[in-house]
Design a protein around this nucleic acid. Structure first.
Length: 314
DNA sequence: CTCGATCCCTGGACGC
DNA sequence: TGCGTCCAGGGATCGA
């Protein structure tokens, strides 16, 4: 469940611990979560990690060709100050970890990528479920990839936020989770922000008042900033690049509190599926939108004819 | 345009 | 103790 605060925490840790290091070699394990494994093996060795930043739920390890001694008389250099942008994108998915280790530390299970660094350490990526993603991108491909994503909830202007939310009839919970609308928000912080702003997760974006939308923007930003201060939420196995847990899970108001009392009004916290995700909310504080009745929802209990093995792939 | 369903994957929780 | 089953969840994809 690494979302924006958790990824920010990890990125800051890596910025402090491995920025400036050069990658000497790459070792890959399972690669089905890597866009182009061959490109990783080919391009990364020799590159320096100049900086680590968060982009939505991604970490961007910015790379540079480390002082490949220019050949004599390579005139193009002046106008082409190195590849303007090349980076390794790392998405932690649900269970991804990226952290430096000393070579003598035993490899933990599910370690799929190891970058040997020029200071003797290894930057290791582990991911049990492999819901994460890794990709080496440069130039136009990098730009195009990043442009797919929406606004950063920490920096989006009130105007843009309002425009993005009210432009859609989708339910607000779906909009918050949609990375092309906002980048970085996941299930936990979406629920927390909606609770704080007193908005029902199933409310259509275009039916929210301007006032509610602005309240939501502020709630989201406050919650994310506070969560970053507390180094994220550790609910399953999240730890930062130092192996430390976050603390924000102790401040959750609705997430994971189904059946407990609302901290604001005392009513029971409920959990329903919205946009295919568990959504926790207070039925009293967060009123259901008027027209959202949809009629009695047929539970449509378990539909497991059998484990269909029809993989399509690609 | 929007939605639900399905799949990917594994570990942990739970029932027997 | 151990096995089976369900669930979690970000994101891609497909059909409705």
């Amino acid at each position: 469940m690494p979302e924006l605060p958790e990824v920010e925490t990890v990125a800051r840790g890596l910025q402090a611990s491995v920025a400036g290091r050069r990658i000497l070699s790459v070792a890959l394990g399972k690669t089905d979560f890597i866009d182009d494994p061959v490109a990783i093996e080919r391009e990364l060795p020799g590159r320096a990690i100049t900086r680590i930043e968060r982009f939505g739920k991604f970490m961007l390890l910015k790379l540079a060709k480390s002082a490949a001694p220019a050949e004599f008389g390579s005139p193009a250099d002046e106008n082409a100050p190195v590849e303007l942008s090349e980076a390794l994108l790392v998405h932690l998915g649900m269970t991804g970890h990226l952290a430096p280790h000393f070579p003598e530390q035993p490899l933990t299970k599910h370690t799929h990528v190891t970058f040997r660094l020029d200071d003797g350490r290894e930057l290791r990526y582990t991911d049990a479920r492999r819901f994460g993603r890794m990709a080496y991108l440069s130039g136009a491909a990098l730009t195009a990839e990043l442009e797919r994503f929406g606004a950063d909830p920490l920096h989006v202007s009130p105007q843009e936020f309002t425009q993005r939310i009210r432009a859609s009839r989708s339910r607000i919970k779906a909009l918050l989770l949609d990375q092309t609308v906002l980048r970085g928000v996941g299930n936990i912080y979406a629920d927390e922000a909606l609770w704080k702003a007193k908005i029902h997760p199933a409310a259509p974006g275009n039916r929210l008042s301007a006032r509610h939308v602005e309240k939501l923007r502020q709630a989201l930003k406050q919650i994310l900033l506070r969560a970053i201060e507390l180094r994220g939420s550790s609910i399953s196995d999240f730890v930062d690049s130092n192996g430390d847990s976050g603390e924000y899970q102790q401040h959750h108001r609705v997430y994971g509190r189904e059946g407990k009392n609302c901290y604001r009004c005392g009513a029971l916290i409920r959990r329903v599926i919205v946009a295919g995700r568990s959504s926790h909310f207070c039925a009293r504080c967060q009123r259901a939108p008027r027209g959202s009745r949809r009629g009695p929802r047929r539970p449509q209990k378990k539909t497991k004819p059998d484990r269909a093995r029809a993989t399509s792939k690609r």
